[in-house]
Amino acid sequence: MLVFFAIHLSRIARAFGNEMRSLPIPGPRMIDEAECICSVLLAIILSHAIGAENVGWAAFSGYMVMRSHVAESFTRGVLRVIGTLAGAGLALAAAPLLLKQPLLLSLGLLIGGGVTLYFAIVGRRAYAWLFTGLTFLMVLIEGMEHVREPILRFASTRVLEVLAGTTACVIVSAISTWTVRRALPNPDNNLRAKPVDLPTRQWHATVARHALVGGIALALIPWAWQWLGIPSLSQSSITIFAVMLVPAASLAEGMLSPVSSRMMNRLVGCLAGGLLASAILLVSRHSPVVMTVGLALGVMIGRHIENGPPSMSYAGLQFTLAFLVVLVPDNYANAVLEPGYDRLFGILFGMVLLEPVVLIAHLIARRSLKTNADKPVAGLADK
């Protein structure tokens, strides 16, 4: 594993150097980066105005929804809001039962997380399923961590954060589409191929087994809280869900390779983003002007990497996630590192929970394949 990490890290470092040399070159990618910066800044302003608690999640929503045309951004935003509302509603309905004891919560996370992960991979409205699952997990786990707080608080703030980010993105995207992009028409700046929807009426056994593995990893979270008391485990659930969200076609040869590659990209991206955000916070001495300039720089770098070669795309996304989680404070009057570091640690701890489960599932699958291969073919055993 260490050798794999070292090789992967060296490849990312070389690709990162190449991408940084092209950062100041004007073009379609720079327009996209400017849109993301404006969207993130507006999302932060709106989230403070409407009383959202996790401002970094609102900022990341403003970043994630952005596409090259307002129609695409709007559609993506609507799916994100619908998924968030559905997930929050399911969590509110299930909380009175599931939060009674760790075993019930563990079972709820396994079923809820596994089902939504399955449809997030094969569903026609995969993006809505993604946020149904993420919101369901985040609300229940935050309710577990803050048992004396009303669960409605966590559900409502998730909705407010997504509404702030989505609204900011659609406003910026509309302005850009009808001004800059109309004057300088550009192709879609999101260079990654769009996922092909699989027919939802067909049962995908391989994807179902994969989703079950993810659900088992999610089911460990209540026990990690009971035994270790690690904060921000909702971020761990995001990591598990996001890392397991791989294309169905990549599972044909097993889950170990695609999941491990995705995990390494997330690890490297999160560490790099967290380090840059920490450096900016320390240098800024809580100056809003310096923090804003640093925020713009970090978002620009993350989006530039994300829109680069496919091998770098996921690392760029994770760079931005960790960067915003650490740098964007929930309260600018009291901007401190600890909440951001707690969330970053929660992101990284999700990999600690997931990796053993994936390895065990891989070994079981390989042993099963070997056993089946060793069985004599019916009708030939006696010949």
Rank of each mutant, 00 (worst) to 15 (best):
L137K: 07
L353S: 02
A373D: 10
H362I: 01
E53P: 02
S278W: 12
A183M: 09
L337E: 14
P329V: 10
A6T: 15
A277L: 00
F323W: 09
L267I: 03
A361C: 09
V162W: 03
N54Q: 11
S260F: 04
L233N: 08
P309E: 15
V122N: 10
A277N: 02
L46R: 08
T206Q: 11
I141M: 00
E355G: 02
L134K: 00
R285H: 09
P28E: 12
M351E: 11
S68Q: 06
V139A: 04
L354C: 11
V325H: 01
V40D: 06
S10N: 08
A248P: 13
M255R: 09
A183H: 09
P195E: 11
L359G: 02
G346K: 00
N189H: 04
C270G: 08
L363K: 03
P339C: 10
G133I: 08
T166F: 11
P199A: 13
R148W: 10
L380D: 14
L46H: 02
I44T: 04
R209W: 09
R124E: 14
A211N: 03
N334Q: 15
C169K: 07
T157A: 09
L251R: 10
V268R: 02
S236L: 03
H286N: 14
R182C: 06
K383I: 07
L369H: 14
L348D: 01
V246H: 06
A95D: 02
P185K: 01
N265C: 08
S47C: 12
S261K: 01
A168S: 15
A86Q: 07
D330L: 04
G254L: 06
K383Y: 06
S106K: 01
V159S: 03
L105H: 02
H362S: 07
L105I: 02
L2D: 12
L327G: 06
A59S: 11
A315T: 13
